[in-house]
Simulated assay, not measured.
Amino acid sequence: MTKTICVVTATRAEWGLLRPLAELIKRDGEFNLLLAVTGTHFRSEFGNTYKEILADGFSIDERVDIILSPIQNAVDVSSTMARAISGFAEMFSRRTVNLLIVLGDRYETLAVSIAALNAKIPIAHLHGGELTEGAIDDSIRHAITKLSYLHFTSCEAYRRRVIQLGEQPNRVYNVGAIGIDNVRQMELLSKEDLASILNIDIKNSKYCVVTFHPETLNNKNVRDQCTQLLRALSAFPDLKYIITKSNADEGGMIINEMIDAYAKDHPNVLTVASLGNLKYLSALKHASAVIGNSSSGILEVPYFKIPTVNLGIRQKGRIMAETVINCSIETSEIVGAMKTAMSEDFLHRAASAAYPYGDGHAAERILAVLHEWLDNGRIDLKKEFYDIEVHE
């Protein structure tokens, strides 16, 4: 009997990572893909990115609207989570789902996972075991791990951490970072074609890709932090900048308003709500550096052997390649890190830096594991806690 696997996506970045796996599930004769789309995909201020899903050749099987207004504060986040639990609980009551696939550490994903737990639907979680000490996502990620049955991590150290959280080793798989599957499979745009599509003059110019999110566990003022970043960008007037907007986090709308205002006065800046997977990866490929605090700067960018200037503590705790330069969110520190990143010496070292997150075959490995567990009816939701020896 065909098994139904539900893949949930709530953000542009999440869909970019899940797409290769969703494609394999869709093509597999023994699985039925149920694609549930929610979150910022249906918000105009985030680019109406559900259109990118349709452009990728997928049908949206379930639309669950959970964001009624821009996320401004903690109340908005909690209200969105409540709507997600309610909306997906209703969906799961109508649909037969044999497995739910979720990725990462978003608050929307935690809410969906809670609804699935109550509906007794087993969960497969991608990118567990990672650390991001500067964001609330860190606690959310570990909570999703405990709600999940199967685990697919991006490196061996993270696999061990999921086991440390009490998950049985035979249910935890190191498959690598799934985002690299896209890099390996896609025919990325040339710099000339990218410039033409984005209508920005970068054919003969150096440029940086910038993405900045709020540090949701930091009491520092997000407006001041963004000001520090924008002042640093102004220190390099000969550079062009492609700035992708912030997520639907508390403080994200402030950042987006500030970068839009900045772009109006700086003709060397392009701001976009979402580039889409092909344009985003193509922009990374030809960039001189990537600046900000997105997980992409740690997971995908180093695969291209280009520098990442990682700001602040949002990504603190992740395993980082030698291509990543960490600095505080202070203008002088950012300027210094950018100069280092684009120096000939650092670029030479980056060209030979080791990549810690796999080889671009994560989706294939995940699909094989799904068959192993679903074909034989091996999943039993009564999980036993796996104890490890503690040395005090």
Score class of each variant (00 low, 15 high):
250 E>N: 14
250 E>C: 12
251 G>C: 02
251 G>T: 07
251 G>Q: 07
252 G>P: 05
253 M>L: 08
253 M>P: 00
255 I>H: 14
255 I>Q: 12
258 M>F: 01
258 M>T: 04
259 I>M: 04
259 I>S: 01
260 D>C: 08
260 D>L: 13
260 D>V: 11
262 Y>I: 03
263 A>D: 10
263 A>Q: 13
263 A>G: 09
264 K>M: 10
264 K>Y: 05
265 D>G: 12
265 D>C: 02
266 H>V: 02
266 H>K: 15
267 P>H: 13
268 N>K: 13
269 V>A: 07
270 L>D: 13
271 T>H: 04
271 T>Y: 05
271 T>K: 03
271 T>R: 04
273 A>I: 03
274 S>M: 05
275 L>F: 12
275 L>W: 11
276 G>H: 14
277 N>Y: 00
277 N>P: 00
278 L>N: 07
279 K>G: 03
279 K>W: 03
279 K>V: 09
280 Y>Q: 14
281 L>V: 10
282 S>H: 09
283 A>W: 12
283 A>V: 12
285 K>V: 01
286 H>T: 04
288 S>Y: 05
288 S>T: 10
290 V>C: 15
291 I>S: 05
291 I>H: 03
292 G>N: 12
292 G>Y: 10
293 N>H: 12
294 S>A: 15
296 S>Q: 01
297 G>I: 08
297 G>P: 09
298 I>N: 01
299 L>M: 09
301 V>Q: 01
303 Y>I: 01
303 Y>S: 10
304 F>D: 02
304 F>K: 06
307 P>K: 02
307 P>S: 03
307 P>V: 04
308 T>G: 00
308 T>C: 06
311 L>H: 06
311 L>Q: 07
311 L>A: 07
312 G>F: 12
313 I>M: 08
313 I>V: 14
315 Q>G: 10
316 K>W: 05
316 K>H: 06
317 G>D: 07
317 G>L: 09
318 R>L: 02
318 R>D: 04
319 I>H: 00
320 M>W: 00
322 E>F: 00
322 E>R: 11
322 E>M: 04
322 E>K: 14
322 E>L: 03
324 V>F: 06
326 N>H: 09
327 C>N: 06
328 S>L: 08
329 I>Q: 05
330 E>M: 03
331 T>H: 02
333 E>D: 15
334 I>T: 04
335 V>R: 03
336 G>T: 13
336 G>R: 13
337 A>T: 08
339 K>H: 14
340 T>I: 14
341 A>C: 12
342 M>R: 09
344 E>P: 01
344 E>C: 11
345 D>R: 13
346 F>C: 06
349 R>G: 00
350 A>E: 11
350 A>M: 11
352 S>F: 13
352 S>V: 15
353 A>V: 01
353 A>D: 04
354 A>L: 10
355 Y>D: 06
356 P>H: 10
357 Y>P: 07
358 G>E: 02
359 D>C: 08
360 G>W: 08
